[in-house]
Amino acid sequence: MTGRRRWSTEEILDTAAELLRTGDAESFSVRRLAAALETDSSSLYRHFRNKTELMRAVADRILLAAMDGHRPEGDWKQRITALALRLREAFGEQLQIATVWGRYGSGGAGSRLVMEELLQALRASGLPDDEIPGHYHRIVILLSALITSEAGISATTSKEYEQAMEQFRVAVLGADPERFPALAHFARDIRPLAADRRAAFEETLAAHLAHIEAQIP
Rank of each mutant, 00 (worst) to 15 (best):
H208V: 01
L87P: 05
K159Q: 12
G134F: 14
L85M: 14
S111P: 03
G74E: 05
T2R: 04
R56V: 00
R61N: 04
E38Q: 04
A200V: 10
H137R: 13
A98D: 00
A121D: 02
E89C: 03
F201M: 11
I97T: 11
F91E: 02
E53A: 14
E53F: 08
V172S: 00
T81P: 01
G105K: 11
H208N: 08
M115K: 14
A36G: 03
L183Y: 02
L13C: 02
H137E: 15
R31G: 06
F28Q: 09
S43G: 02
G74V: 08
I153Y: 00
E11T: 04
L122W: 08
L19V: 07
L209N: 13
E202I: 15
A145N: 11
H208Q: 14
M1Q: 00
R88D: 08
L146F: 11
E73R: 15
G152V: 02
A145R: 14
H70Q: 07
Q163D: 11
A98Q: 01
R188A: 09
P217R: 06
H185G: 05
R88V: 02
T81I: 11
F201D: 09
Q96F: 03
R32Q: 06
E117V: 12
H208I: 01
V30Q: 04
L173Q: 08
R46I: 02
V30M: 13
K159P: 00
L119T: 10
M1W: 02
W7A: 00
E160S: 13
V114L: 12
Q94W: 15
E116N: 15
D176C: 05
A66H: 05
A200L: 07
I97M: 06
E10Q: 00
R197H: 03
A145S: 15
E166T: 02
S8L: 10
T15H: 03
E11V: 04
A210S: 14
A84W: 13
L183D: 01
T39V: 04
E26V: 15
R188Y: 02
A109H: 10
M55V: 06
H185R: 10
E203N: 13
L119P: 00
K77R: 15
A206C: 08
L20P: 04
A82Q: 14
S111R: 14
R112E: 07
L127E: 07
I132L: 14
K159L: 11
A35P: 02
A194Q: 11
G126Q: 12
E10Y: 00
G174D: 06
I12N: 01
I147M: 06
L142Y: 11
E131S: 13
P177S: 07
A210Q: 14
H211M: 13
